[in-house]
Design a protein around this nucleic acid. Sequence first.
DNA 1: CAGCATCCGTGAGGATACTG
DNA 2: CAGTATCCTCACGGATGCTG
Lengths: 105, 105
Amino acid sequence: MKKGYCPIDTFIQSIKGKRKGTIILHLFIEKRRYNELAKLMPDISERMLSKQLKELEEDLLIQKTIYPEVPPRVEYSLTNLGKEIQPVLKSMFRAGIHLEKQMEK
Amino acid sequence: MKKGYCPIDTFIQSIKGKRKGTIILHLFIEKRRYNELAKLMPDISERMLSKQLKELEEDLLIQKTIYPEVPPRVEYSLTNLGKEIQPVLKSMFRAGIHLEKQMEK
DNA sequence: CAGCATCCGTGAGGATACTG
DNA sequence: CAGTATCCTCACGGATGCTG
């Protein structure tokens, strides 16, 4: 991961990628397979999804478990680091609802 | 402001611009003039700074007060909406420190 | 099933110079 | 002092197709 100019910048960089917030939100609930995530977020292309997943993995926020089966099975879940930012993401979610209400006016 | 795919996305969009987090952080402390902000963040070009300020203003997170003096004086401060997201930004700051510690390993 | 490869458009953001 | 204007570059992200 790249360190930002200040801590808040670092944090934003790690979660600002396309739909990263939503991905983490889904993984809060439970671990998910690649295709499950793809179906949960139809608006994001598969190329983008795999790219974001890889970045989140490199940033140590999520991890994947590969089961050597046929057909292949891969499950994504939060790392401990990822779980630790859960309350922050939740308050961001709430703040987002608040911002959207303001936009209506 | 643009509404995102979900609230957390909306929130991220409103603060992900270049150094926006830092700008808001500075305005938490006290209202600032344009040049003060520029000096506090030497890494951002003036063009970028004025652009980010304008966007934050359009998103109703900050406001500016223009004093009809010579030389001109303009002060930027947080709106009520901006103040309301303060705790969120603060926890993002703390999380950022945490992420940076992990990066060292 | 879970992806990567390739090609490509758009816009975020940088550098520099100018103005009311 | 507090910005705008102009130009330019590069990486974010889209679309489509292929593979272990």
